[in-house]
Nucleic acid binder design. Sequence first.
DNA 1: TGCCAGGCCCTCTTTAGGGCCTT
Length: 236
Amino acid sequence: MSETPRAKTFVFMDLEATGLPNVDPEIAEISLFAVHRSSLENFVRDDKGMPVLPRVLDKLTLCMSPQRPFSAKASEITGLSSEGLARCQKASFDGAVVRTLQAFLSRQEGPLCLVAHNGFDYDFPLLCTELQRLGAHLPPDTICLDTLPALRGLDRAHSHGTRAQGRKGYSLGSLFHRYFQLEPSAAHSAEGDVYTLLMVFLHRAGELLAWADEQPHHWAHIGPMYTPPEPLSLHD
DNA sequence: TGCCAGGCCCTCTTTAGGGCCTT
């Protein structure tokens, strides 16, 4: 019997931020789709084979103004900019964001499993950094699933003994195209990418649920991407 | 001037190199 209870709600997430880890990025947009395990176990497909989005789905998407500038590339691909966010009077990733996030998560049956693509190397450490800066925490029994190594691992196990034909792409867009022969819509909006992630997950739902159950990664073991700079002193 | 992620995976590998993946 596993010591870790199976997650009851899967929270699919994506972050848009000011850049890649080499610039110590800050979050500019976060999107979460919370889906109960029962919906993932019992989803249906339409007549074209596309998974039908679960009818019962909680969504949260928030934009916020980072305190440091966007890299040119990040601004280009996300369509977000410091000026645009400031014009809309968006506050930074602050206590209000944390309380909203915690309230959203508290509505879901736990334990929770956060799901992100390349989450171990990007989304989870970056979210951890922002939460740590504010002294905030997620529920202690939260686990997390990174669909990038999970899908690579599943495919490797599937093709064991046979030579895989060529090197497959495992970007979120590549997976969506491979599974559905379609281009993902609204790439690099946080909500668009979470939708793409959820569709990719549903296509392999049985295997990915088993993966999450059999090798849970605890949120408590996620470390920050970097140490945030000290808050500005009142004395300059 | 030079600094400017990092863990994983594949292969023309293992005494290594290079590309992927996230913005």
